[in-house]
Amino acid sequence: MMIAGFVQPDQGSIHLDKRPITHLPPESRNFGMVFQGYALFPHLSVFDNVAFPLKVRRRPRAEIEEKVKAALDLVKLTTQSERLPRQLSGGQQQRVALARALVFTPHLLLLDEPLSALDKKLRAELQEELKRLHRKVGLSFIYVTHDQDEALSMSDRIVVMSDGRLVEQGTPSELYDRPRTAFVADFLGKSNFVRGKVESHVGDGFVFSGDGVRFVQKARDAKPGIGSNVTVALRPEKLSIVAPGTESDNRLSGIVKEWNYFGSEFRILVDTAGCGPISVSLPAWNAGAAPEVGQSLDLGWSARAGMEVQEA
């Protein structure tokens, strides 16, 4: 809303290509915007909706006709141009909103949770289409979403916000594989957390212990001082069940409390003595060894699998 110019920031400034735009009104910013509920003009046909940004810029009729056709072609809606928005399905309305936001070649495209009103399958389809459009028009998109999977699969760069503050930013794999904060480790995908005090340094990592169990962890940059508190985030899919007696950097025993099948994977919740409940996901094709509720087992993970993070 601030980037679009509808709300003035309390402090700070907004720049586009090093040009300050903080006090520019929305109509002078030349940003395309796709709204959560599409916000199509109900009294105008699909064609007139898409032509709107060109008409208010007083472009010649021939140019409007040509550009609107091209934009509708881009979102595959050429045949629906005479219809009114209410005669279209949700997915089609979203495409019209996209065409309308792109037709005037804006500097930037803002998308405010554009797919949140659609069902899962249609959403996946439109996600693919948005990525295709993004490659085709070569424009920067700023995409607001609450759907973490959507953020991971669609972005080149993610900014995680919480309570109006920027928590962390980076590429999807940076944020997923090497988050700096416990908030991001838990928000983008799921994480288990193991907390403890550093006891000694070994190789490129350190040994820490929490509630009497000892773990090895590779350090992120500088090794934390001995005696300091550390938090290590563990992705459920990076944990495995280890047979007694086999070698593993870290080992934690517990009892299976819950067991869920998701088609492609099993998710189990293991109640451990020192670290509370830990969730583990196991690929389903390896299900021969699927544990049962109440069974005791050992979880293991490599010193590289954990992610050293900061508490908020």
Partner: peptide, 18 residues
């Protein structure tokens, strides 16, 4: 009247009078 229509119109480059 959906107030987002007004925001949409402004974001598409229309002045307040338009």
């Amino acid at each position: 009247f959906d107030p987002r229509l007004e925001q949409a119109s402004l974001s598409l480059g229309a002045s307040m009078s338009q």
